[in-house]
Amino acid sequence: MEPDVDPQRAPGGFCGVVLAGGTAARLGGVDKGGIELDGRTLLDLAVDALVDADEVVVVAPRSVPTARPVTFVCEDPPRGGPVAGLLTGVDALLRRPRTVGVVAVDMPRVTATTWRRLREAAAGHDGAFLHDHDGRRQLAGVLDADRLGQVRPDLEGQHAMALHRLLAPLRLAQVPAEADEAVDVDTWADLRDLRG
């Protein structure tokens, strides 16, 4: 199946999608993007890490102001999970990217250097994802936009689909995390540990 290509969209290189629409149940439902770490919001840290991206889309039901201009969008219905968020974010890009970076907003130690390593590792593959010290894939990676278009499900199939199912047909490079790159903020204890 050939991916749909909108001829009106300008070609781009590397574009980013920040997933910030989770329920944050273990944080009492607080908006993770607005949590501060080292005087910056998690959303600003995620957006700043994508400094090399031509464009960034933030998928969230509500928006926290960012220092860098981004496009905010929400999947329909909201909170459809990472697959729905990723594909909604890709569809909202003004450019037709060659490579899409996707990251959860709660991974504040992902940096521009992380993205460069992921993009380098993706050469000759369909993408590359960060793996923690136990070898588990984290929600920080890059994907070839054409290959993503070839495996994307129809609209109904996007919601609540597990990300590993979407990515199963793709050849993905594993990029080992350096230091605390793979740490995510799921609980207040996680945040305290990062601050400590």
Rank of each mutant, 00 (worst) to 15 (best):
R116N: 04
V142K: 10
L172V: 12
G22D: 06
A162I: 00
A160C: 02
A67F: 01
E181A: 08
E156K: 12
P11D: 14
M107F: 02
P69A: 12
D38W: 06
T41F: 03
E156G: 15
L87E: 09
E120Q: 15
A189P: 00
R136A: 14
A20R: 07
V110N: 07
V30C: 11
D154Q: 04
T66W: 02
G28T: 09
A122V: 13
L45W: 08
A189I: 05
D4T: 11
D126I: 11
P78K: 03
R165W: 03
G12N: 07
P176T: 02
G28W: 01
A123V: 15
A84R: 07
R136H: 13
P7I: 11
D106C: 03
L50M: 15
P7Y: 12
D180A: 02
L172K: 02
D44Y: 00
E156D: 15
L42W: 05
V73M: 02
A145M: 05
A67H: 13
D52N: 10
G13T: 14
G149W: 01
G196D: 02
L191G: 11
V59G: 14
D146W: 11
P77I: 11
G124V: 05
G21I: 11
V185P: 03
F72M: 13
R147Q: 14
A128I: 01
V105Q: 04
G89V: 01
V70W: 07
V110Q: 10
Q150N: 01
V183P: 00
L45P: 00
A145T: 13
H164D: 14
Q8M: 05
A182E: 08
Q174C: 06
H125Q: 12
G85A: 13
E2M: 11
Q174T: 10
D154G: 07
V51A: 13
E178D: 10
E156T: 14
G124M: 11
P11M: 06
T113A: 15
G124L: 09
C15A: 15
E55V: 08
G81L: 08
A173Q: 08
